[in-house]
Design a protein around this nucleic acid. Structure first.
Lengths: 136, 136
DNA sequence: TATTACCCTATAGATTTAATAGGATATTCA
DNA sequence: TGAATATCCTATTAAATCTATAGGGTAATA
C-alpha cells in the first residue's frame, strides 16, 4: 500500500510542475486544491526541500517551487525519499541492503528469488518515468 | 514492505513443495526449520488451507500438505491471499477497485498514472511465476 | 514594524501488524 | 476404549507505523 505521505508528495510535485510561471505557491493553496491536510503537507514539502527537490521562499509572496525541470526529476529518486526503499525486503535492496535475521542463506530463499524480480520490474518503471511523464 | 505473514507463507509453501513424498508435515517442523513463530505460522497455514492451497490432516502423523502441484500454483493467487491487493492504490486495483476519496478524477491524477504502470509490471512478474519457479 | 508564510519539534490518535493464549475438535494407535 | 497427537478457532495483547495536529520560532516583505 502506498502511504499517504507519498501520495500527497507526488500530487504536490505535480501541482507545482503544472504552474505556468515559476512563482512560489503557498502550502495552503496546494493543500486546498489537492484536498490535503495542510499541516501534514507542510512536513512533506519540508522533506522535499531538504532533499533538494523544492526551493522555498518565506514571507509575503512566498511558498514552494520546483528547483529542477520536471523532466529532470526521476521517479526513482522521488520514491526513495517519500516512500523509502523500493525493494519489498531488505535482502534485495540496492540502497538499503540488510540481511534477513531469520534467513540463513538468501541464495536458497524463494522469497528472495521472487522479490528480486519484483524489485527489478518496479525499478524499471520508476527509472522510465520523470515528473514530466506522469503529468496529466 | 512485504509483511511477515506473506514472507512466512511463501517460505512454508516452498518448504512443503520441496518434500519428497506428499506426506503431511507438522506445523512445528516447518516453524523450526524456517525460524517462524509456531503460533503465527499456525494462523497463516490455516488461511492457506481455507483458500484452497493446502490440505491438512489431524492427529498423529498429521500436518499440512500441498493440494496442487507447485507448477500449478500461481504467485498471483498466492500473493492476493497472503498480502492482499497487488495494486498500491485502490483506484488501480483490478480485484479490489475503490475510488480515492480525496481525488476528484482519477483520469487526471499523476499518482494513478504512475501506479497503473507499477501494477502492470508487478502483475507481469507474479503471473510469470508459479511456486515451482521460485524453489531453490 | 506589522504581516505573511515557511521552519521545526514534539506529541497524540488511529490503524495495522505480529505474536500469544487457551482451549475445542478430530484422528491415530495401542 | 482412551490416551496421545496435532490441527482448529477465537480472542486478546503488544509493538510498530502511519497520519495528523499543536504551537511556537524564524525570516522576508512591504
Amino acid at each position: 500500500m502506498l502511504s499517504k505521505k507519498t501520495k500527497y508528495g507526488l500530487k504536490a510535485l505535480s501541482f507545482l510542475a503544472l504552474q505556468k510561471d515559476k512563482a512560489p505557491v503557498q502550502i495552503a493553496e496546494i493543500a486546498k486544491q489537492e484536498n490535503i491536510s495542510q499541516k501534514f503537507l507542510e512536513s512533506i514539502l519540508l522533506s522535499l526541500r531538504k532533499t533538494g527537490f523544492l526551493g522555498s521562499k518565506k514571507g509575503k509572496g512566498g511558498g514552494y517551487y520546483l528547483i529542477k525541470e520536471p523532466k529532470d526529476i526521476l521517479m526513482t529518486d522521488v520514491m526513495r525519499v517519500l516512500e523509502g526503499p523500493i525493494a519489498m525486503v531488505p535482502c534485495v535492496s540496492l540502497n538499503f541492503y540488510e540481511k534477513c535475521d531469520d534467513c540463513p542463506d538468501e541464495h536458497t530463499c524463494s522469497v528472495n528469488k521472487l522479490m528480486l524480480q519484483i524489485r527489478d520490474s518496479t525499478l524499471q518503471v520508476y527509472r522510465n518515468n520523470t515528473l514530466a511523464d506522469i503529468l496529466v
